[in-house]
Structures are given as C-alpha cells and as structure tokens.
C-alpha cells in the first residue's frame, strides 16, 4: 500500500471520528443549548424543595434561563437554600418570585420565576424573597382527606 493512500485513509478516519464526536456533542448532547456566557448567581429559600435536583432548569414563562447549581439545608431557619445561576442576558426585577413546579404529571421538577414590577434589577448574590414550595402529593392528599372529614362532621352537626 502506498504511503499517500494510507495517509488519506487515516485522515478520513480521524475526520469522521471527530465528526462522530461532534455529532454526539451537538445533536445528541446539550452543547448547542449550553451557553458559556456569563451568569449571575441568585439564592432562594424554600420550606420544601420536593424532588428538585442540582442542574434542574430555571424557567421563566417556559423558557430555560438558568440552572440550579447547589442545594443546601439552612440549620437556622430549617429551610432549603437553593443556589442557581441565571444567564446574564436575562434580567429580573427585585421582587421576582420563585416557585417549584413540575413539568407534566410525573415529570421532573424545576424552578419557575415570575417577574415582578420593581424597577431595581436583581444582581449577583441576591436572594429572592417571595418563594413557593414544591407541592408534596402526600400533604395534598392528607389535606383533602381532612377537609372531607371536616365536611362530613359539619353536615352531621347540622342535622
């Protein structure tokens, strides 16, 4: 086999090998949507985060604007502190509220941001004041049962 033929084939092999890697990174993975742009860090305290995990999405109006970077437990207030990065191109007013929501019925949980009306914007290291915890199914069911039981007692008392 001639030397140049070998060179061409090895060149083709390396090129399609890197092509395969690029395909995995761009089409299969999330490199395309993965922005290396500047981000700023915000915090929020929640009474209960449910199943929220690190790297969960931060969405506002359904658009992904950032990712959860850390979840810790605050031993003073007995609440969860969720730290998350928001893409620097998205600015939110200071009175923005955060909710933990679920995508679909059994989907994964994410943090939804709802912009407020304040003129001052949030900046690096700020903490969101208005938060709403995750809905825990068991609590919801027990609340419903208590309500039902209370209703039943009321109607009995009324008779």
């Amino acid at each position: 086999m001639k030397r140049s033929t070998i060179d061409i084939w090895v060149g083709v092999f390396v090129a399609i090998g890197f092509g395969g890697l690029l395909f995995l990174a761009l089409k299969v993975g999330n490199l395309a949507s993965f922005s290396t742009a500047e981000a700023y860090q915000l915090q929020a305290k929640f009474a209960n985060i449910g199943g929220l995990k690190v790297r969960a999405a931060i969405k506002s109006a359904g658009v992904v604007v950032g990712r959860v970077s850390n979840v810790t437990f605050d031993n003073e207030s007995y609440e969860a502190i969720v730290t998350f990065n928001v893409d620097a191109q998205y600015k939110f007013p200071r009175d923005t509220s955060a909710k933990i929501l679920t995508s679909g019925l059994l989907g994964e949980q994410y943090v939804g941001l709802e912009a407020g009306g304040d003129g001052v914007m949030l900046k690096q290291g700020d903490r969101l004041r208005l938060t709403q915890s995750a809905v825990v199914l068991e609590n919801l069911i027990s609340q419903f049962l208590f309500n039902k039981a209370a209703e039943g007692k009321d109607t009995k008392d009324g008779k």
């Binding site: 092999f13 390396v14 090998g17 395969g20 395909f23 995995l24 299969v28």
Partner: peptide, 15 residues
Amino acid sequence: ISMPLLAALFSAMGI
C-alpha cells in the same frame, strides 16, 4: 488514539 474515535463512531451510528 483509535479507540475513542471508534467508540464515538459506534455511539453515533447506534443513535
């Protein structure tokens, strides 16, 4: 050198 390229091609082709 060859092995990672072959594995990437295998995955890409599988997908």
